[in-house]
Amino acid sequence: MKHVIPSVAALAALITAASAADLPRRALPPAPIPLPVFTWTGIYFGINAGYISSTRDRVNTAGSYRGSNGAQTGSYTSTFTQHRNGFTGGGKVGYNHQFTPGSGFVVGAEADMGYTDLRRTSRFDFVGANTYRQSGDFLGTVRGRVGYAVDRTLFYGTGGFAYAGDTYRAAVSQTAAGPAYFGSRARLDTGYAVGGGVEYALPTESVLNVFHASAVTVKGEALYYDLGSRTIPVLPVRGGASIFATRFQNEGVLGRVGVNYKFGSY
Rank of each mutant, 00 (worst) to 15 (best):
I232T: 01
Y224P: 00
A9K: 05
S64A: 12
V210H: 00
R56E: 09
T61Q: 04
P233W: 02
I43E: 04
Y266P: 00
A13T: 01
K2G: 06
S68L: 15
V142G: 06
A176N: 15
Y44P: 01
N48G: 15
F248I: 13
R119D: 08
Y51R: 02
A149N: 08
G86R: 10
D57H: 09
P179D: 09
Q98P: 05
V106L: 03
Y168C: 03
G67F: 03
N69V: 11
T246Y: 06
T55S: 11
T131S: 15
P203C: 12
G252Q: 02
E110H: 06
N250E: 12
F138L: 08
A111C: 08
D57G: 02
A21R: 03
R25C: 10
S54I: 11
G195N: 08
Y148I: 05
A17Q: 13
D57N: 14
G136N: 05
D166A: 14
D137K: 11
V237S: 13
P233L: 12
G42R: 01
P6E: 07
V106H: 08
A17P: 00
Y76K: 04
L223M: 14
R256K: 14
I232M: 05
F124K: 06
G195D: 05
G102W: 11
L118C: 07
L227E: 07
P203V: 06
E205L: 08
R56V: 14
G74R: 12
R133W: 05
R187S: 12
G165F: 07
D151S: 14
L11M: 04
R66W: 08
G165I: 11
M113E: 09
R58V: 10
N85V: 10
L254R: 04
Y148V: 11
A17W: 05
R66P: 04
T121R: 13
A215D: 06
A149P: 02
T246R: 02
F248Q: 09
V257P: 00
T116Q: 11
A62Q: 15
V237I: 13
A129F: 11
S19F: 01
Y200C: 06
L28N: 03
Y163K: 00
G46D: 07
D22N: 08
F138Y: 13
T158Q: 15
L11E: 14
L11P: 00
I33A: 14
Q134I: 10
A27D: 13
F161L: 04
V150D: 12
V127S: 13
G50S: 03
T141R: 04
S265V: 10
G228H: 00
G196L: 12
N96T: 11
T158W: 10
I43C: 08
T55N: 01
G165P: 01
A18Q: 09
V172N: 02
D151V: 09
N130D: 15
V253C: 05
V150N: 04
L28I: 10
A31Q: 12
T217I: 05
I43Y: 13
R26M: 07
E110Q: 13
Y132S: 12
V194F: 06
R169S: 04
R119E: 09
G136T: 02
G258N: 11
N130C: 02
G108N: 01
P24A: 14
G50C: 06
S54E: 10
V234K: 01
G102Y: 10
H3C: 02
Y224M: 01
H97F: 14
P179K: 10
T39I: 07
V210M: 14
A177G: 15
V259C: 10
F138N: 13
S214Y: 03
S135I: 00
G157Y: 09
S75V: 03
